[in-house]
Design a protein around this nucleic acid. Sequence first.
RNA 1: GCCGACGUAGCUCAGUGGUAGAGCAGCGGUUUCGUAAACCGCAGGUCGUGGGUUCAAAUCCCACUGUCGGCUCCA
Length: 649
Amino acid sequence: MSKVETGITVNLPDGSKFSLDGGATVADLAKSIAEGLYRKAVGALINGELKDLYTALSDGDTVRILTAEDPSALELLRHSTAHVMAEAVQRLFPQAKIAIGPTITDGFYYDFEIPEHSLSLEDLSKIEEEMKRIVKENQRIVRHQIPNVDQQISDFRSAGEKFKVELLEEHKNESPTLYLMQDKDGKTVWNDLCRGPHLPATGVIKAFKLLKVSGAYWRGDEKREQLQRIYATAWWKATDLEEYLHKLEEAERRDHRKLSKQLDLFSVHDEVGPGLIFWHPNLATIRNVIEDFWRDTHRKSGYQFVFTPHIASEKLYEISGHLQSYGENMYSAMDIDGQPYRAKPMNCPGHIMIYKSRLRSYRDLPLRLAELGTVYRYERSGVLHGMLRVRGFTQDDSHIFCTPSQLEDEINGILDLVEFMMKTFGYTYKAYLATRPEKSLGTDEEWAMATGALEAALKSRGMEYEVDEGGGVFYAPKIDIKLYDAIGREWQGPTVQVDLNLPQRFDVTYIGEDGERHQAIMLHRVVLGSMERFCGGLIEHYAGVFPTWLAPVQAIVLPIADRHREYALTALAKLQARDVRATVDDKSETVNYRIREAQMQQVPYMLIVGDKEAADGSVSVRHRRDGDLGMVKLDDFVERIAAEIKERQ
RNA sequence: GCCGACGUAGCUCAGUGGUAGAGCAGCGGUUUCGUAAACCGCAGGUCGUGGGUUCAAAUCCCACUGUCGGCUCCA
């Protein structure tokens, strides 16, 4: 390192410094540190940003060299695998035009326009084979600064790559780059307009799989070209890929629609219409337990319960503005005595009517109105999905009317309730503070006040959160809580919004201490979201194995022979006397058969009773997961299960 | 709504132009049993709906409808 004057010094992750010649790249750095490192290096984090191996370093950069198998380099891997996939597609379908191919959670996709061909599953395996060939060819992936953008645009145009033309025209002033795929002779065999970064060569790609084809629009705009999208995943190790595919299978096993058939939970019917859920007794039982829990918790938190009509004159939704801003999701009007009425899409206007039914004093506030309110919303046919996306659903809705000085405490109260309820169901969660979007109503001061109150509440309770910049709705900043289920999947959870619109539209006011009229603050919040989505999610979260307090049948008594029937009924009566949901299965089938059936129905406790038990006033307890727990006194078992239910276990 | 795939008995699925099948569930009988499937029998389908091609259609074609995977949005 003699040329220190013209050279640069970079920082390594262990805190040491390393001097290099000016213009040195990550690859040079790796080579200088160790030949072995250089061979394994695929990219780097430079000052925390993912870059490729041939990026020139600047003085003072902090560099962490990434090797294959480094999880931080997964994005490089997936992005490059996306290019390999696009190259393979164009080899097989020369008429295919490439659009974009970003990485996503756990994988990547690439969008194509392929005239006169619809990709099939067979095509996917062919494309995979072609990709393996490209990997085997170990093509070099080379970053190439476009020297003459106009020339490149015209090249893309003559190749018919209209999407690339459009993209390049947008980015022409940002020194755009191509990534070239080169064979072993250094000849460019494929290229893509891309910001990068990428792997140095295709040879390190090993474990990938194409998962599904679907439709997508160019730039997500349904007025633009319909494209074909291939979803795929890529991992450094075959075992990681297997693990991921296994996780997908596990998700499929937990699918609430599948479990619904096994456990007899819900149905939808052609004769009735899509997106309308019929709750069968088993799931209705679960829902009732949850609703009782919900009511109990809310009562203790100072909420008052209300009911509001399912249809209302259009006038209401003109005032609320829903007709103008939400009309597309509302069902068309029905004629009642010559007046147009609508099915309610939201509960808020109804709750405001109750608030406005008389003059409110600051002494009345905060007023917390809660309702399990059923609403109907038009969802396009293609988006309906089991219980998770439906056209009629019941929200655990509440609107809190308060003064500005009460706002922060109210938000905190909601978050208390949210945390308690989510912990009860065993979800972990994370909070997001969604701030003012570009298109929005209200003044800067109002947004600052409302957003500030949300943030202050989060801070005061030490709740971790991320800011979702511009993620608020047009009339409100909000706190979104994302839930993580038993297999780590993310679900939309509770939300809290500070409404800056409806109090004005409806003139929601109270008389203050000063005897003057003031505009009330209005909070919207849901904890469970909708009963449909929440219960659907819960089925998947528990994989159908509901904890005892929720299980439709909590204990099933199995008499061994007909002569034990009477004792079984005694046991049943004792269980039912303590509100345990119990049944007796005295079908003329073997004990084994009845155990198997109860086991498959995920009944928490099976109580086997024969001569010994009848003589002793006992039951032999089998737990669905822990198996045979031996004989216990019936009374002791009843106490035990009652306690378990009370503790919501 | 758009792109693609699919729709056979309550459920899971076989059947690709020549008389609709299996297992489980259901029903009837026998069995009275000790911790995940006793045995025998019976019944069950206008092959999503409508139209077309053909001597003949679950099978090929068209339309509709629903479901599934996505796109957009969201509880």
